[in-house]
């Protein structure tokens, strides 16, 4: 009984942590620009795929990871520079559509470069699962949770302790005022895209040994990450983490106790309920309409 419950919980937390990392990426860009970046899933894919192909070329794992993350970061900057920035004063909806276009473009390139097959990445540490009260935990799950926790702490520090972090926050609060006090808002936007690309690629790398990776893995994981961000309240870091974990755990519990057929249905009705009663999400900012 307990073993069963723990098993579902582990499954839920692992996949939930991945959703949370993706949701954080959405949150970051949303905060800086109010754009929902639908290419977020593609950063995840780039991270995983680049690491796999670099290790296949004989690059040691650690370097491969670093290079993959850098590649994703560059891609994030390029996305902002060449797709978002030229659109200048376009409204947010247009920008969101641009990100959808960019994601299809990136996926297409990835498909040409890496082909369509799924690829395997080795576990970072042992392949032996860990036994806890009769439930088993994949050692990679610990990596996902650990890396996820480190990323969250690092982000919090970045936003509260560093000048650049504060600049991003300031831009998100009021772009005009931020510019008046000397913040280069275009630069800040670029940074936000870069950081969220780094975040996405790291998520893609740690989760790849569990889920495998392929050119189109970003579609569904990106979507789930967006759902997690929406449940938590777009724009809230805590919300992204809570939303991701909740979504993951609810999915696993439904698959375990009710039926795997209803897993996605339950997850999506949960969003409906949350958004119905709390339109800003669980931790969304209260918006005061000025008259």
């Amino acid at each position: 009984m307990l073993a069963e419950f723990l098993q579902y919980l582990f499954t839920g937390i692992t996949i939930g942590a991945t959703y949370a990392l993706i949701a954080l990426g959405f949150t970051l860009i949303y905060n800086a620009s109010h754009v929902i970046n639908f290419a977020q899933g593609e950063f995840l894919m780039i991270g995983g795929m680049a690491t796999v192909s670099l290790t296949a070329m004989g690059v040691p794992m650690v370097f491969a990871v670093v290079l993959a993350v850098i590649l994703a970061g560059v891609l994030g900057i390029a996305l902002q520079r060449f797709a978002i920035a030229p659109a200048k004063q376009a409204d947010v909806v247009t920008l969101i559509i641009i990100t959808i276009g960019a994601s299809i473009f990136i996926r297409g390139i990835a498909q040409m470069v890496w082909g369509k097959q799924y690829h395997v990445m080795q576990n970072f540490s042992t392949n032996e699962p860990i036994q806890v009260f009769g439930a088993v935990l994949n050692s990679q799950s610990l990596w996902v949770l650990g890396v996820g926790a480190v990323m969250v702490v690092a982000l919090v520090l970045f936003f509260t302790k560093t000048l650049i972090g504060k600049a991003i926050l300031a831009t998100s609060m009021n772009k005009e005022a931020a510019r008046l006090v000397g913040i280069r808002t275009q630069m800040v936007l670029m940074l936000a895209f870069m950081v969220s690309a780094l975040l996405g690629s790291v998520a893609g790398i740690v989760v790849a040994p569990i889920t495998f990776t392929s050119y189109d893995i970003g579609i569904i994981l990106g979507l789930k990450g967006f759902v997690a961000a929406a449940i938590g309240g777009l724009g809230s870091g805590v919300g992204a983490v809570v939303g991701g974990l909740t979504l993951g755990i609810v999915e696993a519990m439904t698959a375990g106790y009710i039926s795997s057929d209803y897993k996605d249905a339950v997850a999506f009705s949960m969003i409906l309920l949350v958004l119905f009663f709390m339109p800003r999400g669980l931790f969304g900012a209260k918006v005061v309409e000025r008259v």
């Binding site: 098993q7 579902y8 499954t11 989760v207 569990i210 889920t211 698959a255 375990g256 795997s260």
Partner: peptide
């Protein structure tokens, strides 16, 4: 008799049910 959808990334829950 368990199922999973094509995009699922973890089937431990379903397999636990079968095992039990």
């Amino acid at each position: 008799d368990e199922t999973y959808s094509g995009s699922d990334t973890d089937m431990t829950a379903q397999l636990t049910n079968i095992r039990n």
